[in-house]
């Protein structure tokens, strides 16, 4: 189950997309996601799919690999698709009691499912091609203006990267604790929902105790390595825009322009 979630995972490869500055990827992804809500027609979807296809091809992430990211949300995709298929009023093709399949329904189903899928795929191509550290560094830099409003940008970014480091450790630890309790006859599978929740207590308590201990030790280790907040801190790889990053932004602009044109002249 946990293994199926590919969102947030990194796919190591050397590609033009991997080499882009994280800020470019964050901004373009956001723009792309917003753009998905600006059209309702075939031409818009064609442009969006084309843009995604080009990025995917450039990124060297295998098609099957990125599609795995849709697996955990398959149910939601199907459900929304179905709802739209059956509950959209319009020209009926087929009716069965209260539910009716209409031409409008079919179109809406395809568009909504496509939109959701592209949203997820767009976000995953960003995380696949950007290490968590680059991602947090990019976010930190992009959100820096918020510091004026006393938003602890550096601290939040630091917390994010530490969380990313410790999630796999805690997942593994949960597995070990569950095994240790199972060795004492603990049963996590049978019983009703309430009983099952209760049976997780012997797992959650050691897990929390351990997480708190780890946090304490980590804080000490950070202290001893001269950590004192973001003030006066330098970076080994400071973010600096290069030619290719400007090119990245330009490509995004071209996509927006193409979208604007196609949406306008689209017959639908």
């Amino acid at each position: 189950m946990i293994r199926d979630i590919t969102i947030g995972q990194y796919y190591a490869a050397d590609s033009p997309i991997h080499r882009l500055d994280a800020r470019v990827k964050i901004v373009v992804t956001l723009v792309y996601m917003v753009s998905l809500f600006t059209f309702q027609d075939f031409a818009g979807y064609a442009a969006a799919i084309l843009f995604f296809g080009i990025v995917l091809a450039l990124s060297k992430v295998p098609f099957s690999y990125i599609m795995r990211g849709l697996k955990p949300v398959l149910f939601i995709l199907l459900l929304t698709g179905m709802l739209n298929l059956f509950w959209t009023p319009g020209k009926e093709i087929f009716a069965w009691g209260v539910v009716a399949v209409t031409w409008e329904g079919i179109r809406k189903m395809i568009y909504i499912t496509l939109r959701l899928a592209l949203l997820i795929l767009g976000a995953s191509i960003m995380t696949f091609t950007t290490t968590p550290n680059q991602l947090t560094a990019g976010l930190e830099r992009l959100l820096r203006p918020l510091k004026i409003f006393r938003v602890p940008v550096h601290e939040v970014a630091m917390m994010m990267s530490i969380a990313l480091r410790f999630i796999p450790i805690l997942v593994e630890e949960t597995d070990r604790i569950m095994k240790a309790q199972a060795a004492r006859g603990a049963d996590f599978e049978s019983g009703n929902a309430f009983q099952r929740m209760k049976s997780m207590l012997p797992v959650l308590v050691p897990l929390f105790v351990s997480a708190i201990r780890r946090a304490g030790e980590l804080a000490l280790a950070m202290d001893s390595r001269c950590y004192h907040g973001g003030e006066g801190r330098t970076k080994m790889y400071p973010l600096r825009y290069r030619g290719r990053d400007i090119f990245g932004y330009l490509c995004c602009l071209v996509y927006i322009a193409a979208l604007a044109v196609t949406v306008r002249i689209s017959p639908f």
Binding site: R176, I177, A180, A183, P202, V205, P206, S210
Partner: peptide, 10 residues
């Protein structure tokens, strides 16, 4: 018996 008692005491 697992290596770390911390994994089972609750």
């Amino acid at each position: 018996v697992f290596q770390y008692p911390e994994h089972q005491l609750f």
